[in-house]
Nucleic acid binder design. Structure first.
Length: 872
RNA sequence: GCGGACGUGGUGAAAUUGGUAAACACAAGGGACUUAAAAUCCCUCGCCCUAACCGGCUUACGGGUUCAAGUCCCGUCGUCCGCACCA
């Protein structure tokens, strides 16, 4: 008799040790079983794991354990996304070296992950800051460079003058550096770029085939790539007004059909024509300066008024030599999209209309709704952007905009200006090449040497990796690699004359763009081992936060393509299945003074349905705030270890998957985890009670318990839980497991220590099923239960149970009977009853007969196995 | 502004994809056991009417399609997410 409670603090470390000794999760490369690669987005080693991490890794772990039991050879590795800013910030604040800080964090987080009981093959672990890893990344960089997939160009960046570094757009808040608070400057820097735009078309096309991805993410990627089909149109400059050396203005448009509605041209402030016009026009110069300053702030962009400056330059209309249009410099035209110049058609574009009204430019409608009257159709405050029919457009009149588009394209392609076609079809993408240079220390060094004689020189293979020096200081702003007294000074590998190392390091998104491939051969002396990568990739199920829906996933898709071109892989798409899980949230608390208070510092009570919180120490009232994503600043982070210590890893794992669908946020609550704790104890008692019954050979027959019912419950649970796991619907799986547990409880209450052979068989099967179905979520508890039931195998080695079809269907079924679509009665009838039999039985059922009151129904709809609807 | 998702009890949610709305759980209330507490077990729990049965209403709101709508269509309101002057 085990009257003791289940003690996770004893059993969890025990089973972790057993699994480890048995190498239960080490991958067998020789296995003949079908492969399954499950991967969770690897963590940044910030120092501590919270229950949000637990949710992500538990989901992957449930899939991994489930697939293993179903007979797959499962690859389930873990590593660390270990380069990045926080390590340098810690270095500056706490005088800790980024390397030591990072590896120390990895150590403590690894301990936490191990205590969660994840079925990981730890022998494949690596951190992206391991020289062995970034060594291979440097090789990839050089291979890409040789293939023309990497190039250098000068581009504008957000420059923080205090921290002396480049900032990403999201690090610029209201025009200021997020850390220093300094006004961000636009600065021209020569940077390294990956040619992701080379693959724009393919990256877009293949989205259609990513059927295992959420629709939302596919859409976000499509929008991000932003394909548009349009026309380049070269407008001749009116020679009397053209600046010296300029004879045409090339614009990009997706609406060439509206060319007769054009009333002005607009160019970006940085457009060469604007520059030329500003040469001896100080007013225009001032305007251009103003446009540039506005560039960075998001808030400014939102509210900024459309402004323009008339350059005095005119262009000639391609279809009417005598028609000239003014050229403006406009603050809403972007230099790096299209050609940095547009033609404005006020009637067909809201921005152009606003602009035209402001500067009193003509507004000629060229498209009107099909049923409108051309003579009276006018544009008011709103441009007409819908489909319709062409008007006021000479030879285009009467056409649809699409026909007009093609006609204008055809005609312009046949006119030549400055010896080139005046119009040219052109596909444009919003996607830009990926700038990867960062003026940072804690990142992968770019393996390049700059030589005055030879230019850009690859670091030779035998000199890789270019390792980060350890002896760096963070006491002044800027890049420590650049300050280092000796590191950057090397001789040119070509000509041996003094040269300089590239001191920029790579964007940390590079590190995470191929780690999934590296896991297939983590210790290889090449970036991948082709056979192994081809065998394991693509990742069958990838799991992570939706915040990576665009950049990380797009970069990884680019890397797969680039690695394919350089011979490192065969797949183009790295992730077959993608799942984006919701966050774990928690209530927030604030003191009367407005300071955030941690959940551990308060006591909660509830009176008359009103919840109140007070400070544990002082008893002072605390304001209960909104439910927020866990964050250090709001102090609502629930640490993983503290939960594991009080309730166990299994309870934590169960909680984060229960109740809420996995793609949605789940709220962490005290009462919730306590409820799970009670359930864990309940399973344990249930197993122990069952064991008492099963072990007792002397109990006699008693017909109260129907073994068939229990078998049905168990088989139905197998069927439904399996389906739920297959579709990552963990909350559904949990509900089904609860139901099975309830069914077993009920049956056992009836048995009361007196069961015959059949009943015992039913109970044995049901209780073992309960244990097996729960195993992926609560592996320690179920392993303990399995052993307690007298099994001498390990549950991790057991195969997944199969539902027996014969228990899934009944001989008789219950059919709801509706009258006029509303349920009025239930009918129990043989499964194979004919429609006529069902109809007859339905009509004579008591409440139905009463409602019919002797009259014949208008109509009876019988859907066999589903429902009966009587229309009266 | 453009694009997308969503809206179901006190709460988290389920609903085989057009077929019994509210499974499962949390919270709450009542009871049993106990000297007492914890733990456990049993009962109630969408709203209205009723002593109870019976009944009526109910999936943000308004309309529609259908024998039948939480599910499909149109409109309104609200919440959340992505992009943000992309020509």
């Amino acid at each position: 008799m085990t009257s003791e409670r289940y003690n996770p603090r004893e059993s969890e470390p025990h089973w972790q040790k057993v699994w480890n000794e048995n190498q239960s999760f080490a991958l067998n490369e020789e296995s003949e079983k079908p492969k399954y690669y499950v991967l969770e987005m690897f963590p940044y080693p910030s120092g501590r794991c919270h229950v949000g991490h637990a949710r992500n890794y538990t989901m992957g772990d449930v899939i991994a354990r489930f697939k293993r039991a179903k007979g797959f050879n499962v690859l389930h590795p873990m590593g660390w996304d270990a380069f990045g800013m926080p390590a340098e910030n810690a270095a500056m604040q706490n005088n800790a070296h980024p390397k030591e800080w990072t590896y120390k964090n990895i150590e403590s987080m690894k301990e936490q992950l191990i205590s969660l009981g994840l079925s990981l093959d730890w022998s494949r672990e690596f951190a992206t800051c391991d020289p062995e890893y970034y060594h291979q990344q440097q090789k990839l960089f050089l291979d890409f460079l040789s293939k023309g997939l990497v190039y250098r160009k000068s581009s504008k960046v957000n420059w923080d003058p205090v921290d002396q570094t480049v900032l990403a757009n999201e690090q610029v808040i209201d025009g200021r550096g997020w850390r220093s608070g300094a006004l961000v400057e636009q600065k021209e820097l020569t940077q390294w770029f990956f040619k992701i735009t080379d693959f724009a078309e393919d990256l877009l096309d293949e989205i259609a085939n990513l059927e295992g991805w959420p629709e939302k993410v596919r859409l976000m990627q499509s929008n991000w790539i932003g394909k548009s089909e349009g026309l380049l149109v070269r407008w001749a400059l009116d020679e009397h007004t053209a600046p010296e050396g300029h004879s045409e203005l090339e614009v990009y448009t997706t609406r060439p059909d509206t060319i007769f509605g054009a009333s002005f041209m607009a160019v970006a402030a940085d457009h060469p024509l604007a520059q030329a016009a500003a040469k001896d026009n100080p007013e225009l110069q001032a305007f251009i300066e103003e446009c540039r300053r506005m560039g960075t702030s998001v808030a400014a962009l939102e509210t900024a008024e459309k402004k323009g400056f008339n350059t005095g330059i005119h262009v000639k209309h391609p279809f009417d030599d005598s028609w000239t249009l003014p050229v403006y410099v406009a603050n809403f035209v972007l230099m790096d999209y299209g050609t940095g110049a547009i033609f404005g058609c006020p009637s067909g574009d809201q921005r152009d209309l606003d602009f035209a009204r402001k500067y009193e430019l003509p507004v000629v409608p060229v498209v009107m709704p099909k049923d409108a009257d051309a003579a009276s159709f006018e544009i008011g405050d709103e441009a007409f952007t819908d489909d319709g029919v062409m008007i006021n457009s000479k030879f285009l009149d009467g056409m649809t905009p699409q026909e007009a588009f093609d006609e204008v394209a055809r005609r312009l392609e046949n006119i030549s200006i400055n010896n080139r076609e005046q119009g040219e079809r052109k596909v444009n993408y919003r996607l830009r090449d990926w700038g990867v240079s960062r003026q940072r220390y804690w990142g992968c060094p770019i393996p390049i040497i700059h030589c005055d004689n030879c230019g850009v020189v690859h670091v030779p293979d035998d000199q890789l990796p270019v390792e980060l020096p350890d002896d760096v200081t963070f006491d002044k702003p800027g890049n420590p690699l650049d300050h280092h007294p000796t590191w950057k000074h090397v001789n040119c590998p070509n000509c041996d004359s003094p040269a300089r190392r590239e001191t920029d390091t790579m964007d940390t998104f590079v590190d995470s763009s191929w780690y999934f491939a590296r896991f297939t051969a983590p210790r290889a002396k090449t970036p991948t081992v082709r056979d192994l990568a081809d065998h394991w990739l693509p990742v069958d199920q990838y799991i992570g936060g939706v915040e990576h829906a665009i950049l990380h996933l797009l970069y990884s898709r680019f890397f797969a393509r680039a690695m394919k071109e350089t011979g490192h892989l065969s797949v183009t798409e790295p992730f077959k299945g993608l799942f984006t899980q919701g966050m774990v949230t928690h209530e927030t608390y604030k003191s009367e003074a407005g300071d955030w208070i941690a959940p551990t510092e308060i006591d909660l009570k509830e009176e008359d349905g009103k919840r109140e919180a007070v400070l544990k120490d002082t008893g002072k009232p605390v304001k209960i705030g909104s439910i927020e994503k866990m964050s250090k600043s709001k102090k609502n982070v629930i640490d993983l270890s503290s939960m594991s210590e009080s309730f166990g890893a299994d309870a934590t794992r169960w909680f984060v998957l229960s109740d809420s669908p996995p793609e949605r946020d789940v709220q962490w609550t005290e009462s919730g985890i306590e409820g799970v704790w009670r359930f864990i104890q309940r399973v344990w008692r249930l197993v122990d009670d069952a064991k008492q019954i099963l072990d007792n050979e002397n109990i006699g027959p008693k017909a109260q318990m129907d073994a068939e019912d229990l078998l049905k419950s168990a088989h139905r649970a197998i069927d439904q839980v399996t389906d739920a796991y297959d579709n990552l619907r963990f909350n559904r799986a949990i509900a089904q497991i609860y139901e099975l547990a309830n069914a077993i409880s009920k049956s056992m209450a009836k048995i009361k220590g007196d069961a015959a052979g059949d009943e015992r068989k039913g109970l044995k099967f049901a209780i073992e099923t309960l244990v097996k179905l729960s195993n992926p979520i609560v592996p320690h508890l179920t392993e303990t239960c399995w052993a307690h039931l007298g099994q001498d195998t390990l549950l991790v080695d057991e195969s997944w149970p199969e539902a027996d079809q014969k228990y899934l269907t009944d001989d008789t079924i219950m059919l709801p009977i509706q009258v006029n679509g509303k349920k009025r009665a239930e009918l129990t009838i043989a499964k194979d009853a004919t429609k006529a039999q069902i109809e007859q039985a339905a009509l004579s059922a008591e409440p139905i007969a009463r409602m019919l009151d002797g009259n014949a129904p208008k109509k009876v709809i019988v859907v066999p196995g589903r429902i009966v609807n009587v229309v009266i």
